[in-house]
Structure formats: structure tokens, C-alpha cells
Simulated scan of single mutants.
Amino acid sequence: MTATSREVVEQILRASREQNTETFVNLFAADGYIEWPYLPAGMPDRVEGRDQIREFLTARANGLVKFDEYRNTVIHETTDSEVVIVEYEAHGTVIPTGAPLHQTIVAVLRIRDGLVVSYRDYLNPLVLAEALAGIGNV
């Protein structure tokens, strides 16, 4: 039985928090993508396909931040059974500096046949820019 859109979002959040790259990537359709509409300059605004998503997570994202927990998570199911909106606060650490990180996120996901086809991540770019500046990447 195929997971519901809500169940897929719950699995994505768990894999993300645990930095379980393979589980995270395998929840995407082969041509699925992640998009960040508001990232600081120098960061990719979109990665597409399982291979690019895996490469991005392995080469850049997983070495940047370790999330300890997600708080105040609210999952909104919409009238379109494929679309789910999730709000949460991510609490963790900037790995290279040890500085704490608190990021508020709203994400819009489209799930089809139990796989993510699009993931639009509206994180706070100011928090990310500050974290990157602390390690000399921006």
C-alpha cells in the first residue's frame, strides 16, 4: 500500500532530522526536486533528481548543520491530496563553528504515488547567511 502524502512528509522530516541521506533521497521520485526560493547568493536554488539531491546532501548540507530536533511541527493537508504544507522550527548546530542554529521553515511538498515530486523549502535566508558567514562561505 502506498503511503499517504502526510505519511511521506512525516518520513521526510524524520530522515532529514536524522540526516539519513539514503532514506531521504529514496522518498523522492526519480525526477523530483528540492527548491529554495530565498537562499543567499552562492547557494544552489534547486537540485533535481535523486543523484543531484544525494550529491548536494553528502557534499554540502550534511557537513554544514546538524539538527537535534524539530519543534512546533504543524502539517497542513490541503484540498489537493498531493499537496502538503509543513511548518516547523529546526534547532541544531552549525557543525564547523559549533554555533547554535534556530531556523523557522515553511515547506510545500507535492507527493504523487508515495514519492516527493517537488519540495519547496521556504527557510529564513538571513539565518542561513549568518551561519555561512561564520564559516567563511558567504
Rank of each mutant, 00 (worst) to 15 (best):
M1A: 13
S5R: 04
E7D: 13
V8C: 07
V9L: 08
Q11A: 15
Q11E: 15
R14Q: 12
R14K: 14
R17C: 11
E18K: 10
E18F: 05
E18S: 10
N20C: 03
T21R: 12
E22Q: 10
T23M: 12
N26Y: 04
N26E: 08
A29S: 12
A29H: 09
A29Q: 02
A30I: 12
A30R: 10
G32A: 02
I34D: 05
Y38D: 10
P40W: 03
M43T: 11
R46Y: 01
R50I: 06
Q52F: 00
R54S: 03
R54G: 00
F56M: 10
F56E: 01
A59V: 05
A61Q: 13
A61Y: 12
V65E: 03
V65Y: 10
V65G: 07
K66V: 02
E69Q: 13
E69V: 12
E69A: 13
N72E: 14
V74D: 06
I75T: 09
H76L: 13
T79R: 11
T79Q: 10
D80W: 02
D80T: 01
S81P: 10
V84Y: 04
E89Y: 09
H91W: 14
T93I: 11
V94F: 04
V94N: 10
I95Q: 08
I95T: 04
T97S: 15
G98M: 07
A99S: 13
P100Q: 12
P100D: 15
Q103S: 09
T104V: 15
I105K: 10
A107E: 14
V108R: 13
L109A: 11
R112D: 11
G114D: 07
V116E: 00
V116W: 02
S118N: 04
S118V: 00
Y119E: 08
D121K: 05
Y122L: 05
N124L: 04
L126F: 15
L128K: 08
A129V: 03
L132V: 02
I135K: 09
G136S: 03
V138F: 08
